[in-house]
């Protein structure tokens, strides 16, 4: 066998070939999928809106009405809420609503990315409203966490807690924890004001300010420098742990010391 052939039939050759093939597939798939999501965020076609209308009629119209103008006392009109509202409500699984209650609960998403963008395209075609933000608008890397802290404290912390751990509102409603929420959904929530949340339009908090807030929330992913966070709900949790763990352990040891006595 000559040198080339020996090389060609190297023991590792099949493994290397499989790995190369896998890398190729992943690369193509990634390229295709980012391309398609970029498309979804920027341009939607009339065809999408038509598909969206079908989805709407099948899944949303029972409450929001066939023409999406809402039903009194049941569901609001969706004319002019924009693609951002649909992407938030459907993308976080809040819509379609599972049951009526104090507020819609976030749950597993019911639709694929594509279906959500079709629904959004349909609702956006009903009237002008806020669009889904671009990837650059919500990139925490581009935001200033310190400015975000100040904005968050003034505008968000009274309901969502000092670092977005969540908090109670009246009559069983609540401001959810924000640590698992994606940057896009956080941005859309500020823009559209879902449930009890007020709308923070661009005059109220600038697009850069919104990005700073996202940067501040994403800075919480690093955890607490002090150790376990006890839910970051403040002194109530600390007090409970103080009583149960610290005093509990010590009293258990007094009983132990007392048991070995006279």
């Amino acid at each position: 066998m000559n040198a080339l052939a020996r090389h060609r039939y190297h023991r590792a050759a099949p493994v290397v070939l499989v790995l190369l093939l896998l890398a190729l597939i992943t690369g193509v798939a990634a390229a295709v999928s980012t391309a398609s999501s970029a498309d979804a965020a920027t341009a939607t076609t009339a065809e999408d809106a038509a598909e969206g209308q079908k989805l709407f009629a099948a899944n949303c119209a029972s409450c929001h009405g066939l023409d999406a103008t809402g039903t009194d006392g049941v569901a609001p009109s969706l004319v002019g809420v924009g693609a951002a509202a649909v992407d938030f409500q459907v993308g976080t699984g809040r819509m379609p609503m599972q049951s009526s209650g104090p507020q819609a609960i976030a749950k597993r998403t019911q639709f694929s990315e594509e279906e959500i963008s079709q629904l959004a395209a349909y609702v956006a075609s009903l009237g002008a409203g806020p669009a889904i933000p671009t990837a650059e608008q919500v990139d925490p890397e581009l935001g200033d966490a310190a400015k975000g802290m100040e904005l968050f404290r003034t505008n968000c912390a009274m309901c969502h807690g000092s670092v977005g751990g969540g908090g109670a509102l009246t009559q069983g409603k609540y401001a959810p924890n924000l640590w698992e929420t994606t940057p896009t959904h956080i941005y859309e929530a500020m823009l559209t004001g879902p449930q009890s949340m007020p709308v923070f339009n661009d005059a109220n908090i600038t697009p850069e300010g919104k990005r700073d807030i996202i940067a501040y929330l994403k800075a919480q992913d690093e955890g607490s420098p002090g150790g376990l966070r006890l839910g970051t709900i403040g002194p109530v949790a600390e007090g409970m742990w103080g009583w149960l763990v610290a005093l509990g352990l010590i009293i258990a040891s007094t009983v132990w010391i007392g048991a070995r006595s006279s």
Binding site: T154, M158, G161, P235
Partner: peptide, 26 residues
């Protein structure tokens, strides 16, 4: 093991903001 009073979460005092979960020590 456990964080207590993470003042870096609350931020420097400013009379206007009050966050949810504002309580004194037990």
């Amino acid at each position: 093991i456990f964080t207590i009073n993470p003042v870096w979460n609350y931020g420097p005092y400013d009379p206007s903001p009050v966050s949810a979960g504002t309580q004194p020590d037990w």
